[in-house]
Write a protein that binds this DNA or RNA. Sequence first.
DNA 1: AACTCTCTCAACCGCTATTTA
DNA 2: ATAAATAGCGGTTGAGAGAGT
Length: 243
Amino acid sequence: MGRQPCCDKLGVKKGPWTVEEDKKLINFILTNGQCCWRAVPKLAGLRRCGKSCRLRWTNYLRPDLKRGLLSEAEEQLVIDLHSRLGNRWSKIVARLPGRTDNEIKNHWNTHIKKKLIKMGIDPTTHEPLEKEAKAEESISHADHSADNSSTPAENCSASDGFDLLNKICSDESNLLSSLWLDDEPPLVDCSWNNLPACNATSFPAWEENCSWLLDFQDFGINDLGFDCLNDIESNKRGDKTIA
DNA sequence: AACTCTCTCAACCGCTATTTA
DNA sequence: ATAAATAGCGGTTGAGAGAGT
């Protein structure tokens, strides 16, 4: 016999979350902490599946999220990490506190990919596109050589005129080697990771640092208390227009 | 003003690894 | 040992917003 089903599939709501639902989820996690996602919808009074609750929390409601556009440094780090780790977003995001895998994945697909292509770099292999084309050509003429077995990182030193790629490849070796370690802590401390799981009574440092979350419950628009959500959104859009 | 196109990103889907009864 | 559920991951989709005509 296995476990009990995570949620009653019947009557489970899908689609965008409402402010009311967000509030319920925030309230529940504030009170009960983050544990047993399968129980969350029922206990929080949500007609959602636990998986959906977890996603909503980790990608949108978490108090330690930075939000807004990625800085140049963050973008560089993503490119760097991607050249070594590939599409392993969870590993990449582990080095970017305050960011989510979904966010980084989206940013990669919508911005960085295009940027790299524009710069003449293949976003998948991190090889110069010219070189790639030549390589493909030579492969079509002759059977593939042993050169292709080397990793992008190994090859990139040969790419003249590609400043970004060179920068990536010449990063401090200590830093880069640490990026390969699976259980390495993030480059910047992330207090969220230190949260006591499943402890309903203790939210010491977290609550102190997340007064905005509590603000959700005290102030608001549309009689629901989410004014600052709109602020965040408008700030975000403001950033966009500035950029 | 109205329509179409493009872009962005929140959310879902399906899969794998891990955990639990 | 096994089956079934959970958690988490990466890929994909589609609604909404903004830009262009």
